[in-house]
Simulated scan of single mutants.
Amino acid sequence: HVWPGLAGSIDVTRGPAMSYSDAWKVTVKGRGGHGSQPESTIDPVVLAAHMIVRIQSLLSREVAAQKSAVITIATIHAGLKENIIPPSAEFTINMRNLDTEVREHLLAGLRRVIKAEAMASNAPEPEIEELYTFPLLVNDEAETDKVIGVLRGVLGEDKVNEKPAVMGSEDFGALPDAIGVPGVYWFFGGMPPEVMESDEPVPSNHSPFFGPVMEPTLSTGTTAAYEVLMSRLRAK
Rank of each mutant, 00 (worst) to 15 (best):
N139Q: 08
G189E: 12
D199H: 10
V195C: 06
K159F: 11
D158R: 14
G189I: 10
V138Y: 07
D158V: 04
N161H: 15
V154E: 13
Y185N: 07
G183S: 06
G189T: 11
M196Y: 05
E170K: 09
L155V: 03
G183W: 09
P208I: 05
V160P: 00
R152F: 04
D145T: 06
K159T: 05
E157H: 12
G153Y: 05
E162W: 01
P164Y: 07
D171Q: 10
R152T: 07
N139T: 02
V138A: 06
G190H: 06
F172P: 02
G183A: 04
L155C: 06
G190I: 08
V181F: 10
E197F: 02
K146G: 01
G168I: 11
A165Q: 09
V154R: 13
S198K: 05
G153F: 04
F209C: 00
F172G: 07
G173Y: 10
W186I: 00
V138W: 04
E162F: 02
D158T: 14
P208H: 08
M191F: 07
V160Y: 04
V154P: 03
P164W: 09
V202K: 06
P135H: 08
N139S: 03
F209L: 15
V181G: 03
V202Q: 00
L137F: 03
L175T: 10
P135S: 07
V166S: 15
E194M: 02
V138I: 15
A165C: 06
S207W: 12
K163C: 12
I148E: 09
D140P: 05
E170F: 10
G156D: 02
S169I: 07
D140I: 04
T144Y: 09
S207A: 10
M191N: 04
Y185K: 06
S198L: 07
M191H: 04
E194H: 14
V184T: 01
F209Y: 14
E200S: 13
P176R: 08
P135G: 11
E170P: 01
M167V: 05
M191I: 04
E157D: 15
L155W: 03
T144E: 10
N139C: 02
W186Y: 15
V147N: 07
V150N: 02
F210R: 05
E194V: 02
P193V: 02
H206P: 00
F187L: 14
F188E: 07
A142L: 13
P193G: 09
P164N: 08
G168H: 11
Y185V: 01
G173S: 12
V181I: 14
I148M: 13
V154F: 01
G183V: 01
G173E: 06
G156A: 08
V181A: 15
M191A: 12
E143T: 03
K159Q: 15
L136E: 02
F209T: 01
K146S: 12
P203N: 05
V154Q: 11
V184W: 06
F209N: 13
E197A: 14
E197N: 14
G168Y: 12
V138D: 03
A165D: 02
D177R: 15
E194I: 05
V138C: 11
L155F: 04
D171E: 10
S169T: 11
F210Q: 00
P208E: 01
L136A: 05
P176M: 07
G183Y: 08
A178F: 13
V150L: 08
A178P: 01
F172Q: 08
D177E: 14
E194R: 00
P164D: 07
P203I: 06
